[in-house]
Design a binder for these strands. Structure first.
Lengths: 337, 337
DNA sequence: CGAAGGAGTGTTACCGGTAACATCACGAAC
DNA sequence: GTTCGTGATGTTACCGGTAACACTCCTTCG
């Protein structure tokens, strides 16, 4: 069908130059906002550019300037709310700054190594890792890439930029809330423990319980999906009065299983989630959870990387504060439990 | 920090050629699997490439070949499940075929025109529109781009490729299910009606009701969010015995509102959704809904576009069959309602 | 008043590939 | 034996920009 044909083939920089009566180099300077161009000349060139509907060829720019204006993103489990939202936010922020984003999703079929190879093949100016498992980070540690690299994780990382929502604070808010309500036998429904975020939440859960004088029971480990939460909910020990779920989706599945067993939330068991997905307020009951601002995370990631790229001083590590959102899934424990 | 330094600057095609004792053109042919290369030569070149860790420069290739191996995607409401999933599937499929994807999200701040401009600026070989509103399509109709273009929508479009989940069939499955259960006063909770999918679902809802001898009541229009479903649920007319929601999230919000009013699902009101989001099976009650295979949609989109690009014969329009998933949110109507 | 310096512009080379055409050797066909 | 076709490879130009340096003028300053 539309296989080219009468396409008037795009104008190039020399055609613009000829029509404007200047050298192609002057046109290049106009494009790049070079300071020393006479205003009259600039106007004339811009006029011709408009007239020809000229658009600089990005491949040629990339080739000559050896920069691609592209940020590579490696992201694990992009279908999950957190990583997906972060990626979207990064794409938006990058686009606003005139950068392109290429993302590769890591999964069973694609190793972090593959992902890095793919990105290297197309060429990137900066690299970002979202929701990295430990193995992805190891790869970067040895690889010592020559480009600015940012890892979205809460712990600092020598020689690399890091940025994250403060996982320890978030988990702490959730646990403090439950403990303040009077809960002591709190189950943790964790995410996969090779996830740094999952591990951080699990550690804080443990610490807080110990600090409150309670002894943590073994964690239940899910895989972020509501299905895994459901499975855990089906065999919840009767002594448990509250569950701290590592994300909202697992909380949803858990509540579903409890409902099937006639266990009421929050009367019989309190549940607190993590993320504050947009639907969490309409769960039954509306879910108490920890909100993470992924848009801020994405924006800051891009700002940090581009700052580094421009040689600015950027903080090597930064944390974004999460926020507890109290809804209807938590209450004081029943005295008879 | 890692601002380049001792980077051993990547090898280029001529260095490979020199070391292999051939011309750079021969190396180029090896890269591109040109048929007439002596096996021994190919081996030698490959060996050198491996040794130098050579990677073709994609910008140079794009410049010389005038193809970017990049697919541009314009997507509205990428945060919604359907569009987001489709985009991810396209990215995966494109990556498997050695293509890159650049996506632009259209929203209040970014018009379809802007999006097209952005994509044109970076250069794309093919274009895909996901979840387009009518205005995006108008833009393409006049613009008559010179590259293969596919629109994800169910209705055919002259001179453009189209592909979609069969919205009419999906809506039909949902309505037939409710009608077979005995419902006649079925409210439609629609998506924004400038969405083609929303409009298709609404039309089928109306047609099916009329065909069943019932008179459709005015549609309730939401915005895909659970919040909007909640709002509708707060003032549900008492005569309504069932709701056909245009997506799962609005169904969730609706059910939440009903629960607050003491209206039970499905005993008092049946609810059927659309999408089958992964969590739908853990809603309370588990949601009867229409499953759309977005992965298939994404894969087929890429195959169609690349087929067109290669000059193959591709079907100009194709539909993917959705599937009704019956769970616990639907039941026969109460006789006293 | 001459040298220095900066604004404004041009010249030339180069980035790393691909396209198109040329070349050469060799076996098949006449 | 000459011609021809084809496989294998090389030569050259070109894609559309940017970098680096050169060259004018003019202004400023010792």
């Amino acid at each position: 069908m539309s296989t080219a044909a009468n396409t008037p083939k795009a104008a190039n920089i020399r055609q613009v130059a000829t029509l404007a009566g200047v050298s192609h180099m002057t046109v290049s300077r106009v494009i790049n906002d070079h300071p020393s161009i006479a205003p009259a000349t600039r106007e004339r060139v811009l006029e011709v550019m408009r007239h020809l509907n000229y658009r600089p060829n990005s491949a040629a720019r990339a080739l000559a300037s050896r920069t691609t204006r592209r940020i590579g993103v490696i992201v694990d489990s992009v279908v999950e709310f957190g990583p997906g939202s972060t990626l979207r936010a990064i794409e938006d922020a990058a686009h606003d700054r005139g950068y392109t984003v290429s993302s590769i999703a890591v999964d069973r079929a694609v190793t972090p190594y593959d992902a890095l190879e793919s990105l290297a093949a197309i060429g990137i100016d900066a690299l970002c890792l979202i929701s990295p498992r430990t193995d992805s980070i190891d790869l970067l540690r040895e690889g010592s890439t020559a480009i600015p690299t940012l890892i979205v994780k809460p712990e600092p990382e020598p020689d690399l930029l890091t940025l994250s929502v403060d996982q320890r604070l978030g988990a702490s808010l959730a646990m403090q809330h439950l403990i303040a309500l009077g809960h002591r036998d709190i189950l943790h429904l964790a995410g996969p423990l090779d996830w740094l975020d999952a591990r951080a939440r699990e550690q804080v859960w443990r610490e807080q319980l110990v600090a409150a004088g309670a002894s943590p029971r073994p964690v239940a480990v899910g895989d972020w999906t509501s299905d895994s939460g459901y499975d855990v909910g089906r065999s919840l020990p009767t002594e448990v009065t509250a569950v701290f779920a590592a994300n909202d989706r697992m909380a949803l599945g858990l509540i579903h299983a409890l409902a099937e067993s006639g266990i009421r939330v929050p009367q019989d068991v309190s549940v607190v989630g993590f993320d504050d997905v947009p639907d969490a307020r309409h769960f039954l009951p509306p879910l108490t959870t920890v909100r993470q601002d992924f848009r801020a995370l994405g924006r800051l990631s891009v700002e940090t990387l581009l700052g580094e790229l421009e040689g600015l001083e950027v903080p090597q590590r930064r944390l974004i504060e999460p926020e507890l959102v109290v809804r209807a899934s938590t209450a004081p424990p029943r005295s008879d439990r």
